[in-house]
Design a protein around this nucleic acid. Structure first.
Lengths: 113, 113
DNA sequence: CGGCATCCACCGGGATACTG
DNA sequence: CAGTATCCCGGTGGATGCCG
């Protein structure tokens, strides 16, 4: 009864809800990937050509991680030559408003000044 | 003139507006730091006690980076013992809506589900 | 109290070569 | 076309110790 306990006792990074979201979208290439897929499904090769700076292995892994987090789906067509299309899930689509705000903030406060 | 040029020619990570914002708030401890400061200014020691898992040096550096990015201000009071208070700038405060959306997304799609 | 200097460990990202 | 398999590198985060 000596000291009044404050509301926030401890606050680790793990419990931070913002961190939890950034853990999902925070990969170096995940924002541009999701940003592109918000316009519609894309093939692996198209993603690669659209983002020439990303190594194939890295693109592959980022896509796999996004799939594991339920953000995108991977659909392979058993054709020759192979075709694989990536598309957002509902969960991924639900990121749109948040990502839009992040985008607008940078336009206002970083790029556009 | 043979091929029709698509709208999106290339899309590096550097040009992605979302990535630009995440570069600012994406440090491991930056979200919880900003999240706390959205409630009001705090002293260095209070931040440290509130987030026990962060090493002092790391906390110090993250604060310095946020200051360099214009997100927070550092005010030192020439007293004994020393006192230093950190507070959000307007630019930092302007992150509130975006961070709120990130927070809500995780509550809905990760934690609470 | 509120740092900074030093050193270290880890892991995400990258280049290259090969495959179903 | 759409990857996987290795190997490597740098940056960020972390532990410890000293200082105004």
């Amino acid at each position: 009864m000596e000291e009044k306990k404050v509301e926030i006792l401890t606050h680790g990074a793990a419990e931070c809800p913002i961190t939890a979201t950034i853990d999902v979208i925070g990969g170096k290439w995940k924002p541009p990937i999701i940003w592109l897929l918000l316009r519609g499904p894309m093939r692996f090769g198209t993603l690669s050509k659209t983002m020439p700076d990303i190594a194939l292995k890295v693109l592959s892994r980022q896509l796999k991680e996004l799939e594991a987090d339920g953000i995108i789906t991977r659909k392979a067509y058993p054709e020759v030559p192979p075709r694989v299309e990536y598309a957002l899930t509902e969960k991924g689509e639900s990121l749109r408003p948040a990502l839009t705000m992040l985008s607008e903030w940078s336009e206002t406060h970083i790029l556009g000044k």
